[in-house]
Design a protein around this nucleic acid. Structure first.
Length: 343
DNA sequence: TAGTCGTGGCC
DNA sequence: TGGCCAAGACT
């Protein structure tokens, strides 16, 4: 039997019952694909259910404020996905008359939709026979065909896309793409792949050549930058300061305490002529893909007049605990508050 | 095109 | 523990 018929048979028998597989609504397919970018099904599913429930149609999403969308996205990471999701929803409603693009070429024009996502939506929602090449597809194809092309090289995408076009099942392109991904996510996993129960182990070239553990080849390594964050929890009674992150940096358009990024918080306060007595409340390191953040939470109790004064100086807002439900927060801030207000 | 963007799970 | 990686896209 051929590669595609074997994995489709396997998929029909073993596919997981995931909520976005219950319909062909392109909006919901798009929503699920954006949420699942660089995200495991186990982590993304709850977010998908919340979004689908809160915004059942693209018009509902377009009507929302970006802050509301980011709040619902809080904790999922890669927040540009949420910003682009919202931008694109408005674009579809306002410029495309609320009609979702129905082919790969037009889907590619949407912000936040690249080759993978366009192919996934086109194949799943509109039966267009184009391969969706994600990390799973790279790995499964690299092993099955014993391909030693560096998947972090620019040519790799094109190479695997062309390969995928040759093996995709034109009658069931959406199921084929999902079968490839599901195989990669559950059988052909990066470490200790389950070759013993793999439906294509008889014809897998990497098994034959004993190269399974070597593939796929990926040369690019990430450089990790070290940063020191000092968050200031400046409170007067129930109120404290919070500030929107508008710069192009991590957590853009989310909110955090007034922040000083410095080796010496004392020196920083002196330079700004701020006379604050700070108590170290909490310290932790927070790991991001390209950054290692050393975070210190400082607390300062002030009176209401001083809080107002500092809000102006630090370009911040004054809010209270109850209002936090509207403010999207980076994970460390979320954890800090959940500890602070714990019963 | 190389760097950047989160969080969590696994070994 | 630390490194790797996940249904990638943007600049």
């Amino acid at each position: 039997m051929t590669f595609n018929s074997l994995i489709l048979i396997w998929f029909d028998k073993n596919k997981r019952n995931l909520p976005w597989r219950q319909h062909k609504d392109p909006y919901k397919i798009w929503l699920s694909e954006i949420i699942l970018q660089q995200t495991r099904v186990a982590q993304g599913t709850a977010y998908y259910l919340r979004f689908a429930d809160t915004f059942p149609t693209v018009r509902d999403l377009a009507k929302a404020d970006e802050t509301e969308v980011l709040k619902l996205w809080q904790g999922l990471g890669y927040y540009s996905r949420a910003r682009n999701l919202h931008f694109t929803a408005k674009h579809i409603v306002n410029e495309l008359n609320g009609i979702f693009p129905e082919n790969f070429k037009d889907l590619m024009k949407l912000k936040g939709v690249g080759e993978y996502t366009a192919a996934a939506i086109a194949s799943i929602a509109f039966d267009e026979a184009l391969p969706a090449i994600d990390g799973n597809a790279f790995r499964l194809y690299a092993r099955y065909f014993n391909i030693h092309v560096d998947i972090s090289s620019p040519q790799a995408k094109k190479y695997f896309f062309e390969l995928g076009k040759q093996v995709i099942d034109p009658n069931r392109p959406g199921d084929f793409n999902q079968a490839v991904m599901e195989m990669g996510a559950t059988i052909c996993v990066p470490v200790n792949p389950k070759c013993g129960i793999c439906p294509v182990n008889n014809s897998c070239e990497a098994i034959a050549q004993k190269t399974v553990e070597l593939l796929p080849i990926k040369s690019k390594k990430v450089k990790v930058k070290q940063r020191n964050f000092h968050f200031l929890d400046i409170t007067a009674g129930e109120k404290f300061l919070i500030k929107k992150r508008i710069e192009n940096d991590v957590w853009k358009n989310l909110y955090n305490f007034p922040l000083f990024e410095t080796d010496s918080i004392d020196q920083q306060l002196e330079e700004l002529n701020l006379n604050l007595s700070l108590i170290k409340e909490h310290e932790e390191k927070h790991i991001l893909t390209h950054q290692r953040l050393q975070i210190v939470f400082w607390k300062a109790n002030v009176d209401e007049a001083e809080l107002k004064n500092l809000a102006e100086k630090l370009d911040s807002e004054i809010i209270s605990q109850k209002e936090l439900e509207k403010y999207p927060l980076p994970r460390p801030m979320e954890k800090y508050f959940s500890k602070k207000y714990k019963v």
